[in-house]
Design a protein around this nucleic acid. Structure first.
Lengths: 353, 353
DNA sequence: CTGAAAGCGCTAACAA
DNA sequence: TTGTTAGCGCTTTCAG
């Protein structure tokens, strides 16, 4: 690959002149610049960003830490981040922790060694302490959806998960459900996640407001996968007195719940109402289309990325207000005892991608 | 951040000694090595991979070029690539072309400038010529799912898409469908994609084998999104004599078809059978669960990544045989005129994630 | 067993 | 307007 020196030799100029010419900096004669640029083209010159980074101490890369890139939720997240980053000339390293603390730590240290300019950290795999200790002091980090109390982690950008949970409770209560089960996230390694606790809290608040208690015996756990949602639902269906509705704290688990119903020959919302959380792309297309809490991933991650880029640029940034959520009512919920096959038109959201 | 020199000064050794000690190379006294490593720990030393790359001329990064990371298909793809790459100490740059040739080219040149060690190129956004011209000569590239004639692009790893199309035809014909519409991929910028043509070809072969012609008037086009599948299906439903089945050449468009049916108050497979292609995670969870051609993305991308890594290591690699596909029959297909609500148990594949 | 020295390709003062 | 020079942090020959 041609280097600056090659061009310098070919044009009879010096390396620094070539550098200036190609960077569009400095004060060069039109003619010289043109000649050099032409030569660079001819030689198929491609700057070596590695070398540049070594001297500028900037890599124009950021890291995005997620738990599971195969989850469509993170696919949407990744897309938004990538778009914004790209426009600013940044590339992004997607780091998949697979919810494995050790692996995640290793990957993070590697990112540090690769000198990323900043990080967007989403919770799930790694504790904040781990992230902080694995990265270098002063590295800009935007905490995305951590929803920590206090302003411990900053800058943080979050969505109002409590509000989301609350909306679910209001909806279900309005339909007259009194026996509602919860399938929430919990793993052996990480335990309960704050984000999911907040969803539950909002839900619980809603119940309390309507004058009903939260029935702890109807809470089950999963690891945010379809499989785990299914298992949990199967367990709930085997109860002597099963619930009339299930609220899963993410869409993937809600999908699992629907799968479990189908296996048992049951239908939502006739035999059981089902609510999810996240509103992933396919939620509107399920059988039946899923009632779920919508998180505007694009808006959200765009904000996060913009914030990070500003922090990298040296601006003093502060955490913006929580983004609101909204309930998208589709066909997986109805009052208990609603007859089957009351086919409503699924206009809402269809084909939106 | 501490550098080798800092450690050298602190331990009274020289930079090269420290380098050897930390790299575990060379012939150092146990004692010296231990002392240096201890000091490195204490100072929180993190190697600067940028500097290392500059001298070794290897970055331990690969690029993965896809068209749409928000498509669950590519989410699965990304996950598999990331896993294999990680184990080998490689990180991956995900490059989203958004099917935009100019953007893609730019991103690719950037990857080249960043000196990735190799590239996995998936088709859709960029032509092979563009990719070749935007990267440096001799950069290892694995062509994934390009399905080019001849062994023009090598090494290539592909799936037997013709076989997939053939399976769809056999299935639909066996059910007695004679009027089947196709929704296939085509965009203004890229036109027809070879991969999708092969699917159609296999399908057409199957028809021919059964003694039926392909009805070109029933072919519609989309851009592989849910929205486009929906639009195409709506158009087909408006025909004076609509088809009894629709074969969409990817799952996202098939989802759009299902959405269109639901909007019109119709049901699959009662009013219309629907078949997809890809078998994305959520396909099994749709309403109804989608009959589709399964591509084993994990196996496939694992093979591709392994191949790339070997090419990077300097091995002479050749293209492996096409990976087989298989038809996963779920509930979106049935013989024409099948009465509604013949509820079959959706055991297959549920909860597999 | 350890040190000295060169250099990867580039940027950015400073000099001419 | 251009050239000279000094590195960025690291690896790796080659001496000692």
């Amino acid at each position: 690959m041609a280097t600056l020196r090659d061009i310098a030799q070919a044009t009879g100029a010096t390396v620094s002149t070539v550098s200036y010419a190609l960077a569009g900096k400095g004060t060069l004669a039109q003619e010289t610049r043109a000649r050099i640029i032409a030569c660079a083209h001819e030689l198929g010159y491609r700057p070596n960003l590695i070398a540049r980074s070594l001297v500028t101490e900037r890599t124009s890369t950021i890291g995005l830490i997620v738990t599971d890139i195969a989850n469509p939720f993170y696919g949407e997240v990744a897309q938004a981040v990538e778009r914004v980053a790209y426009r600013a000339g940044y590339r992004v390293f997607f780091v998949n922790t697979d919810r494995d603390e050790r692996l995640g730590r290793e990957l993070l240290e590697d990112l540090t060694a690769r000198r990323v300019d900043g990080i967007i950290a989403m919770p799930g795999g790694l504790s904040a302490e781990t992230i902080l200790s694995a990265t270098s002091l002063g590295l800009p980090i935007v905490w995305c959806m951590w929803e920590e109390e206090e302003h411990h982690l900053s800058p943080a950008v979050g969505v109002d998960l409590v509000m989301g949970g609350r909306l679910v409770a209001d909806h279900l209560m309005a339909f007259g459900h009194r026996r509602v089960a919860i399938v929430m996230h919990r793993t052996e390694s990480t335990g309960l996640t704050r984000g999911h606790c907040l969803r539950l809290q909002g839900y619980s608040d809603g119940l309390a407001h309507a004058g009903y208690p939260l029935d702890a015996s109807l809470i089950r756990f999963g690891d945010s996968t379809i499989a785990s949602g299914r298992t949990a639902a199967l367990e709930l269906l085997d109860l002597s007195s099963p619930p009339t509705a299930i609220f899963a704290t993410n869409d993937l688990m809600a999908i699992g719940v629907l799968a479990a119903l189908r296996e048992r020959g049951l239908q939502a919302p006739h035999h059981m109402s089902v609510v999810g959380f996240d509103d992933i792309v396919t939620a509107a297309q399920l059988g039946p289309p899923l009632t779920t809490v919508h998180i505007d991933k694009a808006t959200f991650m765009t904000a996060a990325t913009t914030l990070l880029l500003r922090a990298i640029a040296g601006e003093a940034v502060t955490s913006p207000a929580l983004l609101p959520t909204r309930l998208v009512v589709r066909e997986s919920t109805a009052p208990p005892g609603t007859p089957p096959n009351n086919h409503r038109q699924g206009k809402e959201d269809e084909g939106a991608l």
